[in-house]
Amino acid sequence: MNSVTVGMADLNVLKHPGVLVTLGLGSCVGIALYDRRTKVIGLAHIMLPYSYQAKNNSNIAKFADTAIYKLVEEMEKLGAHRASIVAKLAGGAQMFAFESSNELMRIGYRNAAAAREILEQLGIPVVAEDTGGNYGRTIELYSDTGKLRIKTIGHGIREI
């Protein structure tokens, strides 16, 4: 099966059959989109919530807002229909306590919140979510059923 790895601040899409993987999500959020009708899938590994808050925003895969728009656009190019796309979110952890005491404050939480907001604007429902906590996640998105497999160190493996 076609397996494609999505790096940090990166996104990718593919047609069934295939798997999209992203490794070691910390405070970053993995945004997994799945078109139930055409089985086109898309995955983004975003680092920051909104592109307009950054000085340098040329890398659209880095931000929740621009990455989601781009992801949907790329999926539509492969034949996906926005009306049948659903979303799953994973990541958005707080890896270290110190993050709460400086301006990196709750970046994971803010990333997940931004992803939800943009998805709502696009009318894409978030059907499952595994965000927060203080641990990293590796995720795999399967095109056959849209299942999202989440692997952790010391916090088990689960599917959503």
Partner: peptide, 20 residues
């Protein structure tokens, strides 16, 4: 104690605000 990628994303995010 965690995956190296998740740990290293902490400084990476800080740098993400200004560059790549």
């Amino acid at each position: 104690v965690d995956m190296a990628g998740a740990i290293l994303s902490v400084p990476a995010i800080e740098f993400g605000k200004t560059g790549d």
